[in-house]
Design a binder for these strands. Structure first.
Lengths: 158, 158
DNA sequence: CCCCGTTTCTTGATCCAGTCAAATCAAGGG
DNA sequence: CCCTTGATTTGACTGGATCAAGAAACGGGG
C-alpha cells in the first residue's frame, strides 16, 4: 500500500525523522538486512547517520511493532518490515541467506506443544535450516558446526 | 542408561579427558546451561578448568553430536546433552527459563514449508515463547525488550 | 513565523560472548 | 616407558550491541 512511512511512524506515536525514514526505506529494499547493511544503505539517504543511530531506530521500530527482529543462531540480528503475519524463515547453513516462508497450515503445525509445562505460550518461532539453491548446486555442505559461521563469510564463496 | 561418558567420547573418536568428563557431567545435571554456568559447575570437578577450555570442549561435543547448542534470541547460547530426538524448546520471555518440549508428531514435524524456494531443508527449529508459571503468577509481563517480538498477532497462529 | 519542551540523533566509550593463536600438558598406542 | 598427537591453559582480540552525555531536530503553541 502507499501509506507513507511518515504516516505510520506518526500513528505509532513516533516522530518522523530523517534517520527513521532512511532506515525504513533501507528495510523496505532489503528484506532481511543486518544492522551493518542498514547503516550502509540508509547512510546513502542520510550521510550523517551513525551505527548507533540505526540501532536506536531499529529498537524503536521493533518496540512499536513497525519492524521485527530475527536472530538466526550464529549470525547477527536481521530486521524486516513485514510484520503482523507471523511468517517464518528459511536459513541457509552455508551462506546465511534468509527467505520468508508463509506458514503452510492455517493453524500451524508444531504450534501446540504437547506439554506446555504451565507456560503461557504467545508465539511460536520456526526456523528452517538447510541449503539454498546456490549453495546446494555449488556442492557446499553447510558449515561443519551448524552455528559456527560468525564472521566467516566469504570463504565458502560461490 | 549407564553407558559411561568415557565410552561415548571414545566411540565418537574423542579422547577421554578430565575437562570433557567434567563438562559432560555438568551438562547432565544442568539441562540448559550456558557456557558460563558450565564453567562454574564443571570447575568444581576440575579446578584448573578455564572458560576457553569449556568453549573448546563444547564445540568438540557439538561437532560429534554428543551435545546440542541452542541459541535463543537475545541470550547466550545454551547446551544440552539430549540429542537425536528432535525436541523443541519453550522459553520464558521474562526469566529466560528453558524447558524441553517433545514434538507432538513423531519425528520431524514442520519440515515441509509450503514453499521451500528451492532450499533443501534438513531441520526445523521451533522455539515457543511465553511466560513460565512462576513469572506468570508473579505478574511479570515479559522483560522490557528481550527480543521484542511482542505485537505478534494471532499469537501462535501461522 | 518563531519559541520552547521533549524526543531523537551524534559522538565516544564500554560490555560481553565467543574466538584466535602460541606454548604447555596429557592421553594412550607402540 | 617414551613418543606422537591431540587437548588444554593462558592471554589477547574480534565483532555485535548497549550505555551515557551533549547537541540537534521535531512539532505544538503563541
Amino acid at each position: 500500500m502507499e501509506t507513507t512511512w511518515a504516516h505510520r511512524l506518526r500513528d505509532a506515536g513516533l516522530r518522523v525523522t530523517r534517520p527513521r525514514l532512511a532506515v525504513l526505506d533501507a528495510l523496505a529494499g532489503h528484506p532481511h538486512a543486518d544492522a551493518d547493511t542498514l547503516v550502509t544503505v540508509a547512510r546513502a539517504a542520510h550521510p550523517p547517520l551513525s551505527p548507533q543511530a540505526v540501532y536506536g531506530v531499529l529498537r524503536a521500530l521493533v518496540a512499536v511493532g513497525l519492524a521485527r527482529r530475527v536472530e538466526p543462531a550464529g549470525a547477527p540480528a536481521l530486521y524486516e518490515v513485514r510484520v503482523g503475519d507471523n511468517h517464518h524463515h528459511l536459513v541457509c547453513r552455508s551462506c546465511g541467506a534468509v527467505t520468508d516462508v508463509d506458514c503452510p497450515v492455517g493453524a500451524a503445525p508444531c504450534l501446540s506443544p504437547s506439554d506446555a509445562s504451565g507456560f503461557v505460550v504467545d508465539e511460536a518461532e520456526v526456523v528452517f535450516w538447510g541449503l539454498c539453491p546456490d549453495c546446494r548446486d555449488a556442492g557446499r555442505p553447510a558449515a561443519a558446526v551448524p552455528v559456527a559461521q560468525h564472521h566467516n563469510r566469504g570463504g565458502t564463496g560461490a
